[in-house]
């Protein structure tokens, strides 16, 4: 097959021909077009990889943003995620969906970044003269803004592990199965961790934001 340099051409060709990947593994969870792109990327085709990055860049960026609360840092982490994924592509199991794999790399990098001294400095620096902003400046109404800010503050009071499972399930809307793959745990563990995280979130709301519960009733 001749190499195709335009990613739209790749997509079009795949869409039209439904051609299959030359790999040995029979994928079960990936669309055939993704398998083709992965196989091409494994052979060093950067354009094919770019198409895959476009498919997954938004959830990767958003997960990093939830962890780091800073768009510049989130962008760095998302870029690093896809560079590392490209380097590790030979080890990717084609029988599994790609999104959890990508998100697991992003979560690891974001976790490390959050622990790093530079992140530490960064957050402190931002405090210097920046007034706190409401979480959602686009939300209409002071009451609603207050609610969203309170809820966000409550989530931020949770431990990082609790935050992570909430981000994956509620913010990125992953299924239990996808969340389990991202966190490298069993689906049952995701359910129990989510229950624990929500219980703790309720406790934080009761303790620190008692007015919030009244506004929901």
């Amino acid at each position: 097959m001749e190499p195709v340099r335009c990613f739209r051409c790749i997509l079009l060709r795949m869409k039209l021909s439904g051609e299959s990947a030359p790999g040995e593994v029979q994928p079960t969870d990936l669309p055939q077009s993704s398998v083709d792109l992965i196989m091409r990327a494994r052979q060093g085709d950067g354009v094919a990889w770019e198409v895959l990055v476009q498919q997954y860049q938004q959830p990767a960026f958003r997960l990093a943003y939830l962890f780091l609360e800073d768009s510049d840092e989130a962008e760095d982490v998302a870029q690093e995620t896809f560079l590392r994924a490209f380097q590790a592509l030979d080890r990717f199991d084609l029988s599994r969906p790609m999104l959890p794999w990508i998100l697991s790399i992003a979560a690891n990098l974001a976790r490390n970044r959050r622990r790093s001294i530079w992140r530490f400095f960064g957050v402190v620096q931002r405090l210097v003269r920046e007034e706190p902003r409401l979480v959602s400046g686009e939300v209409d109404g002071a009451e609603q803004r207050w609610q969203t800010q309170s809820l966000w503050d409550a989530v931020q009071h949770l431990k990082h592990n609790d935050q992570e499972v909430i981000y994956l399930r509620f913010f990125l809307e992953l299924s239990v199965e996808e969340t389990a793959q991202t966190m490298a745990v069993a689906p049952g563990t995701v359910k129990s961790r989510l229950n624990r995280a929500l219980t703790r979130l309720r406790e934080v709301i009761d303790r620190d934001h008692p007015d919030l519960k009244d506004s929901w009733t």
């Binding site: 990767a60 870029q79 896809f82 490209f86």
Partner: peptide, 24 residues
């Protein structure tokens, strides 16, 4: 939580694909 997550004003996702391509 779900409603809040849907309303969260994420920054626009940058063109990561292009940057990754340049790095590669």
């Amino acid at each position: 939580l779900r409603a809040f997550a849907q309303e969260l004003p994420y920054p626009p996702t940058p063109d990561i694909a292009w940057a990754v391509r340049q790095e590669l």
